[in-house]
């Protein structure tokens, strides 16, 4: 009786979870082929971006110990200025913001930024990029 109860409940759990796992590939996506959409330049309303930096809004990034992969991946990009922040990257878990410092004279490749964050385990949603003069452009990376 006991074993039947256990097996029945575990089986029910597994069956009810099956669609979730089956959906995994589609959702996780790691869609390296999809390119971030670059919209027309706008002034960032709610996000403060310093000159020579970019701020990426990342869904789910609420744990800094778990987000080391994001920092690691971004810091390896050629246009990141590793002398600022932690290897050029600052993660703010309260606001789900990732700030990257951009080397002087470099342009950030948002496709590489997108892939780095996705491979780090999180969903990049939008980016605010400031040039050396402090002009900010908005880029939608993924539908939220």
């Amino acid at each position: 009786m006991f074993y039947q109860s256990v097996y029945l409940v575990l089986f029910a759990f597994f069956i009810s979870s099956a669609p979730v796992f089956a959906d995994h590939d589609g959702f996780e996506g790691h869609d390296h082929a999809s390119k971030p959409r670059v919209d027309k330049p706008v002034q960032a309303a709610d996000v403060s971006v310093s000159a020579g930096e970019a701020v990426i809004i990342v869904h789910g990034i609420v744990c800094s110990f778990c987000s080391q992969g994001v920092t690691r991946n971004l810091s390896r990009l050629s246009f990141i200025d590793n002398s600022r922040y932690t290897k050029g990257v600052k993660v703010e878990i309260e606001d789900q913001k990732v700030t990257i410092a951009i080397k002087a004279g470099s342009q950030p490749d948002l496709k590489q930024v997108y892939d780095s964050i996705l491979d780090g385990g999180y969903e990049p949603i939008e980016a605010y990029v400031s040039d050396a003069d402090g002009h900010v452009t908005y880029h939608k990376l993924k539908d939220s």
Partner: peptide, 17 residues
Amino acid sequence: PLKYYRNRKAFTENFSF
């Protein structure tokens, strides 16, 4: 561990088998 993640604004969750 096989995990399915869902990331939302200010929130992350996962189911594991």
